[in-house]
Write a protein that binds this DNA or RNA. Structure first.
Lengths: 188, 188
DNA sequence: AGTTAAATGTTAGTCACTAACATTTAGCGG
DNA sequence: CCGCTAAATGTTAGTGACTAACATTTAACT
């Protein structure tokens, strides 16, 4: 059940955490400090976020992305299908860009331990794409290669976006990243 | 100072850890158990390996790889330089393939938390390659994209190798992985 | 306003990992 | 073979992320 109270508490944790992370760094900030600043107990923190890094790392877009990949013409190479699928999905996702998104990404880009946390999420997305490709008859290894390479390029663009000038859009950077993986002479 | 005693202890820890990981899984195995099985103290474990996952995850090849990338013709695209550099470096690295390598990789492939640990190492390698490309005048984002995409494909091949039939060599799989990132019609 | 389920608090614990200091052990010269 | 010394190990005590079980409060809805 999603009650208003839950949302309020969640928002307060998020505010407190982002603030502390930016002021003292991610590693130097303890969950206890976040809980204190949010006026709650450490236990309550973990009821809203399964781990400390979950405050910064969340991406529930896996099914959407996998579907977009699956919707690409099956006669293309796995890499092309993944590439075009990601570009398509990008259009559906970026509208959500709220103001805190950039703060989050900038923080993630700074800490190696956080990038590890991101990689867990990416791993799930990769698996979703891979499964979808394999279901269409692609060899599992080829599928995993295509998915992981495209996602790695996308992630590189995402992290760069965190510290890019504010007039640079995420969409631009991701397009540029995926363009590098395009077969020579492709236009999209 | 590398004394024989140090090497013995290190080997005993490694044996005990691999054995326990394979029998009970990585997450279900505690450092205390490893220390007990190796006849040492938990503290001593951490003097030989900085973290629990360091027993399985180690790759000191960064400078070698970065150099191989830098040695590729500078008029190629960043992606091509990275791709060819990795293929070159592969020849210098794979001879080290000892019997436990496959056990290690197979274990890593199974646990998400371990793949996160791998990604920390990969991250360092990516940075090394990126720096090298940037030093030659490549745009930082383009460099990061090329490095991360190529490494992601390589990692996918590595993980697949862990559970591949024993007559499949790592070299074959990596070549296949990187071939997918080649411009259309390339031969190497 | 009262009921009740959802949200929070409390307590006690595990596990990875660290710091400071004490103790043992192995490798070395005599 | 013996002692000396530095390297290796042990001990103790602690921090921080995270969990389980149970008690308590709070807010949504009638």
């Amino acid at each position: 059940m999603v009650t208003p109270r839950t949302l309020r508490t969640r928002a307060r944790i998020l505010d407190a955490a982002l603030d502390l992370f930016e002021r003292q760094g991610y590693d130097a900030t303890t969950v206890n400090q976040i809980a204190d600043a949010a006026g709650i107990t450490p236990m309550t923190f973990f009821r809203h976020f399964p781990t400390k890094d979950a405050v910064l790392v969340t991406d529930p877009y896996d099914p959407l992305i996998a579907d977009a990949v699956g919707a690409q013409p099956a006669d293309l190479s796995p890499l092309e299908r993944t590439r075009l699928g990601l570009l398509t999905a990008l259009g559906d996702i970026t509208p959500t860009e709220d103001t805190t998104a950039r703060r989050r990404v900038a923080l993630v880009a700074q800490s190696p331990s956080l990038r590890a946390a991101v990689s867990v999420g990416t791993d799930a997305t990769q698996q979703a794409i891979t499964d979808r490709l394999v279901a269409d008859g692609t060899d599992p290894l080829d599928a995993a290669i295509a998915a992981s390479a495209c996602l790695a390029a996308t992630t590189a663009a995402l992290l760069a976006w965190g510290s890019a000038p504010s007039d640079v859009t995420l969409t631009d950077l991701v397009r540029r990243a995926l363009a590098q993986l395009a077969p020579a002479g492709a236009t999209s």
